[in-house]
Write a protein that binds this DNA or RNA. Sequence first.
DNA 1: ACCTTTTTGCAAGCCAGTCGCAATAAGTGG
DNA 2: CCACTTATTGCGACTGGCTTGCAAAAAGGT
Lengths: 136, 136
Amino acid sequence: MDLEVALRSQDHRVTRPRQVVWDVLTDAHGHLSAQEIADEVSAREPGINVSSVYRTLTLFAELELVRESRRADGGSSWEPSHGDDVIHLVCSSCGVVRHHASPLVNELRHEVAHVPGFHVAGLDVAANGVCERCES
Amino acid sequence: MDLEVALRSQDHRVTRPRQVVWDVLTDAHGHLSAQEIADEVSAREPGINVSSVYRTLTLFAELELVRESRRADGGSSWEPSHGDDVIHLVCSSCGVVRHHASPLVNELRHEVAHVPGFHVAGLDVAANGVCERCES
DNA sequence: ACCTTTTTGCAAGCCAGTCGCAATAAGTGG
DNA sequence: CCACTTATTGCGACTGGCTTGCAAAAAGGT
């Protein structure tokens, strides 16, 4: 995925904050909270402000470069867009998010697409529970 | 569902704030935000404090009398517990939440119960989109 | 290099939700 | 019915994630 192309094709400028946020998101394989992103960004490039990070994330979401998902603890987490037939496994103890792919999600998507009186844009399947590491 | 019994059986006291919150939740057929609940509560019984409303909602959630679900806009909404094979249809424009029952959700629940290394407690399927009324 | 327009950094602000604590009221036993 | 214990409330202060207004900085076009 080429960030520059994606931005320019929609008349947005390619800036340092945007590049760094993008790098952080793609380097991390998995979900990050806004806080984690902001921290890592200013570790790599001190001086980039939180508000720029938030604005960038919002922009990326509009461009569908990233996806925001709400977590059980009230926070939200961000990751580069990916295929959709995925269940989010959210550990309610440490907050980590894993993926689990299942064809059922796609079946569900098709079913939900035909509900009358509602135009579905996206589907989010989240299971909360406790991950291996927190169990012990 | 009898609130008094539910509370007493777990050694909790039956108080006015709890009753009013419960009434509001059961009268409203559907999801309410914490804010809406607090507003309606203090309309019915001025003097009941927001913090009591929040504490009550948390308590009810622990007792599994109500269920909290996170919404796409970052808020959360509350409703009396109900069967689990349900998809939440969240209108991203007006925030209203509808239900759509589907047996697929239960299949999904079974599948997810067997994912290794993760102990699932609950499943939440949410579709966001635009409702009929906001479409026009 | 110049000019226009977007984007940034900063600081102040916002607001849902939480917390500590003294006052109040539920439930209990006499 | 009253006194007593302890959970619960209301209040006000506070927190923390996120947003906003604005002047200064930098992107991109010519």
